[in-house]
Design a protein around this nucleic acid. Structure first.
Ligand code: MN
Ligand code: MN
Ligand code: MN
Ligand code: MN
Lengths: 235, 235
DNA sequence: GTCGGATATTAGGATACCCTAAGCCAGCAG
DNA sequence: CTGCTGGCTTAGGGTATCCTAATATCCGAC
């Protein structure tokens, strides 16, 4: 396969860039310089500079003034980091009592410092979990990742029954609020109302008598699987 | 106490320098540039440069051409890193099945990437251990460290009964060999012979009929407490 | 089809580390 | 008390990453 192998290990910066590019280009398109910069909280010229290094390293493909995409090699590196991040989040939550709103920051640093061996030991101790605490799928050790067809709660039809699968934010304040509302992965919902002009969505939560009114900003973060009739337990 | 506080977080390099300086100057003296360089596998001029930065940051005191010592602030930072390192080694060994010969490298990287919160959670999960897998004392959360009076096996008198307390190396090959020989912290020994001219020390291990012949290089690494009559279990 | 603004890149500079080569100094040998 | 020499520091560079300011490009509005 690989000819000379033994590329230098990636730096922390590079690893974070690759993860961000993965997320920004996962819908098939290009990741724009300014979007990468915003996600990493950097100035756009810093990104231009790194883009040059990453494409020289064969990790991304750069189309000037359009954006970047991962090469196969870059995608592998990104998925490896995503596995690390999500295994760490799951381990810290299940074994060390972290809350789902505080675990991201810890994993964001640790993901660059641990060995593959440690990640596999953690995954093993957890029984090879398939989802992290936010419901995001954990790539396998072979770097395959589940691609689920999920709908945003903000776009689900009124009357629709749903199972909440993923909460797509890492902001601690939002996560804390959602947990208080019982809106965590696995929750069974029925959409009972939606107000116009980007208004709130109202849902009925199974196992709770009270309704929940969710503004569009949060409803966009709640990724659901249609037809959540019976609670199927997720790993 | 501190006036403006909020010093920038220390870098990984700085943290490793401080740990090394702590170890080199723990016997009260100065840590020499060339010794620091050797421990960190760096060229001496690199150390001179870092020494300048560290003393400007108030972490060390530098006497040109003599060496450096930690300030109170530097000592605190060093002990914090040592606590992190040793808690991590203990956690990885006890909770994730690491061997005592492989755990050092993992902890050496992780110690810079985890939060104080995580360290305290790990320590709590272990019941606040006092010693790491090599028998080294773990500083408390308040950064107090036990100073034990230990003798090297290479210097113990023939006939002396000893308890092995610390194995002062992190070399995996030496650690593996010593473990095979049953020479791990807690072992009860009696010195039965020493050959002259830096020759080997022979010990009888309680609970084992065979004697162990230990060359000086290894015997110097085995730090013992005299009078190991009854096995007192260490945390 | 041209213009202007948004977006991207290039230019130029800073910081943190590391290196090799060259120069300096303290203390011991005599 | 004088030099030698090993250890230390300074000089001069290199890489990686970030920044701000200036410039270039693209594209939709007109
Ligand atoms: Mn996360
Ligand atoms: Mn990260
Ligand atoms: Mn260690
Ligand atoms: Mn370290």
């Amino acid at each position: 396969m690989h000819a000379l192998a033994h590329e230098a290990p990636l730096t922390r910066s590079v690893e974070d860039y690759l993860k961000v590019i993965y997320h920004l280009s996962s819908q098939g398109g290009f990741a724009a310089t300014s979007d990468i910069a915003a996600m990493l909280d950097l100035a756009p010229p810093s990104v231009s500079g790194m883009v040059k290094r990453l494409s020289e390293a064969g990790l991304i493909e750069h189309v000037p003034y359009r954006g970047v995409q991962l090469t196969a090699q870059g995608r592998r590196a990104a998925l490896r980091m995503i596995r690390r991040h999500r295994v760490l989040e799951t381990y810290l939550t299940q074994q060390l009592g972290y809350d789902w709103d505080g675990v991201h920051a810890e994993a964001e640093r640790m993901e660059h410092a641990v060995s593959d061996d440690l990640i596999e030991r953690m995954a093993g101790a957890l029984g090879d979990p398939r989802y992290d605490p936010h419901g995001e799928p954990i790539p396998t050790a072979a770097l395959e990742i589940e691609e689920a067809e999920l709908v945003r709660l903000s776009e689900a039809a009124v009357g629709q029954a749903l199972e909440l699968r993923e909460v797509a934010t890492q902001d601690p304040a939002r996560l804390r609020y959602l947990a208080e509302q019982g809106l965590t992965p696995g929750a069974q919902l029925v959409v009972t109302d939606r107000q116009p002009f980007n208004g709130p969505t109202t849902v009925q939560l199974r196992g709770s008598s009270a309704a929940r009114v969710v503004g569009q900003e949060l409803a966009r973060l709640l990724l659901c699987r249609p037809g959540g009739g019976d609670g199927d337990a997720r790993a």
